[in-house]
Structures are given as structure tokens and as C-alpha cells.
Design a protein around this nucleic acid. Sequence first.
DNA 1: CGGTTTTGACCCGCGC
DNA 2: GCGCGGGTCAAAACCG
Length: 165
Amino acid sequence: MFLPVSLPSNMALNSQVFDNFHGDTSNGMLSSDMKTDKLIQAAQVKEVVENGGFVGSETEIKSGEKEKKTRKPRYAFQTRSQVDILDDGYRWRKYGQKAVKNNKFPRSYYRCTHQGCNVKKQVQRLTKDETLVLTTYEGVHTHPIDNPTDNFHHILSQMQIYTPF
DNA sequence: CGGTTTTGACCCGCGC
DNA sequence: GCGCGGGTCAAAACCG
């Protein structure tokens, strides 16, 4: 259920992200940096936090192992929005929700529903500024977007590509 | 009726 | 060892 978006600005955000994605994923080698960058630009993010460290429990390296283990990239950014659900075009299934120590709002855990794609993200609203939403992505999508909650604008722009006239 | 949300339980690492 | 904080599981509820 990613439809309760009632803000027109948010919908404009989504369409812009879609356009960017379709323009860059032609070879399927879209880097997560570009993705995040596009999202940031589109979402009018106030502050960006890039986490270059390790993610997850088993990815931690203890011994002489260098950094050859699967170090998933994790990108976080804050968005000023009144709605918790920021639809980025992917389908997410919620699998958990926990309360965080210093925040009164719970943190929600989502997983990409695409088969074989275990990209995760967590969404958390900040207590400091109730209008700020911190979204953290973990992993990289390696499959095209199944554009679900689309606006007709984007559909039409796609149709124009395949229409000779 | 199938996929998603909900929600408490469970697990794991860490600090005391 | 134990409690705490954070992350995930899974069964039941929920919904289109």
C-alpha cells in the first residue's frame, strides 16, 4: 500500500525519479551513487549521510581479512515530507517495526519484494523535526522498476518512445 | 484467496 | 551472565 500520497509535490518527485531511472538504466549497470544522487536532487534533501562502513551483522571483518566480503552499500538521506511512505518506484514488503531509543516514532523495515532482490530499506521519522523522514537504503537493485503507482504522465512519455509519430 | 501488514517473540552483539 | 538496543521472523489479521 504505497498510495496514500496526498501531496502533489511528492507525486512530482516520483515522476522525476522515474524519468531519471529510465534514462540511466539502459545498460543495467546503474551505480547506486547515481541513484542516490538523483533521489537526493529530486527530493530536496536537507542533509545527506553516506555510510561507507560495513553493514549487517555477518559482514563485519575481524581478522586479517581485507574488505573482500560482501560489503553492501548503505545510503541514507533525509527528506522533508509529511507522509511516511516515500514511493521510489520499487515494491516493498514491510517485515518489521521497532521503536528507537531517542525517537518517539518507530522505525519501519522494508524489503524489496522482487524475487532474488534482497534490497532493504528502513524509514524513520525524526523527533527533532516531525516533518523530517530519514530513509536508509541497503543494497542495490539489479532489476527494472515495476512501475506500480504511476501517473499517466510517465505512461504517456513511455508510449511516445514506441510511437513512430 | 493471495499478498501484505501487524506485532510479539526471538536472536545476536555488546557493555557492564 | 544478564540486560539492552537493534534487526528479523513468523503467525495471524487484514484487505482488495
